[in-house]
């Protein structure tokens, strides 16, 4: 079943490059006629380098940014023009995990207040009930009650990421959009974070839209993957297949750029046994 669908989405920003007195002209499209669907229970990888339009696409799917043209469909209904009140109910079904959790927290809020924000917005008025659900959610991401009163700056990078995930799942959504969720994490924490996300997906029946520039994870983490370049999707395939038989030269270039896992597999060095 299609949960979330982009139909011919296009976003054009005004080009301000013409100086303070120039007219603002439409620039090149950041997202150019993209159609994409996220099915229930799958992980869809959206792969591309910075500036390819993948974050803009994600924001349009979440209705955080209006598209220039095209439609956004949630469970078959066109939500493109829904107003705030109606949108709120859909918002609770799809949530965002940020690349840098630290930046996505108000620095003066405690963990409890951060995770409580979606609950308040969803109309959970009783503080006791909110706390109960927050504790339950923190537990599911591996954090205990001791963290409730911490400020973001008092958490480690891995803990911040967990709080970010907790905020996203506290309303038990169906869809998580993960925007480079590992890239701001230390190496040793990435594997844990990946396992946590995989576990939560199973446990809560989530579907993921996984935005990344790192092709090396795609094979294991994604059911399907779409490669985006300059606002367009250039290739779309099942995850494992993309790793092995990608056809588009751009995808091949990305694959060739993945650093070696072992010094014996060096790709760039001309003289591999150089001493």
């Amino acid at each position: 079943m299609k949960l979330l669908e982009a139909v011919d989405l296009t976003k054009v920003y005004a080009d301000r490059a013409s100086g303070p007195f120039g007219r603002s002209r439409p620039g090149p499209p950041a997202v150019d006629g993209v159609s994409l669907e996220l099915r229930r229970g799958e992980t869809l990888g959206l792969i591309g380098e910075s500036g390819c339009g993948k974050s803009t696409l994600a924001r349009m799917l979440l209705r955080l940014e209006p598209p220039t043209s095209g439609r956004v469909l949630y469970r078959g209904s066109d939500i493109t023009d829904w107003k705030f009140g109606r949108m709120r109910r859909v918002r609770s079904r799809m949530q965002l995990v940020f690349q840098s959790s630290a930046a996505s927290f108000n620095p003066s809020f405690t963990v409890e207040r951060i995770v409580a924000e979606p609950l308040r917005n969803a109309g959970v008025k009783s503080a006791a009930e909110r706390r109960l659900r927050i504790l339950e959610t923190l537990e599911s991401v591996g954090l205990g009650a001791a963290y409730l009163d911490r400020l973001p700056a008092e958490l480690s990078g891995g803990q911040q990421q967990r709080v970010g995930i907790a905020r996203a799942i506290v309303l038990r959504p169906e869809i998580l959009i993960l925007d480079e969720p590992f890239s701001s994490l230390d190496f040793s924490l990435r594997r844990q974070a990946m396992e946590l996300l995989a576990g939560l997906k199973e446990q809560l029946g989530l579907s993921y839209l996984f935005i990344t520039h790192d092709l090396s994870i795609v094979g294991r983490f994604c059911d399907r993957a779409a490669v985006m370049r300059r606002g367009r999707i250039v290739e779309q395939r099942p995850g494992a297949e993309l790793m092995n038989e990608a056809s588009h030269p751009y995808t091949r270039m990305l694959l060739d750029s993945i650093p070696a896992r072992h010094p014996a597999d060096r790709t760039y060095r001309l003289d591999r046994t150089y001493k």
């Binding site: 924001r59 955080l64 609770s92 949530q95 965002l96 840098s100 996505s104 108000n106 917005n121």
Partner: peptide, 22 residues
């Protein structure tokens, strides 16, 4: 421009709440 304002919007916060809280 802070990410936490975007995060608040994504979680369904109203403009009034964002303006005051964040």
């Amino acid at each position: 421009e802070n990410d936490y304002v975007l995060a608040a919007r994504a979680s369904g916060s109203s403009h009034l709440r964002i303006a005051f809280d964040h």
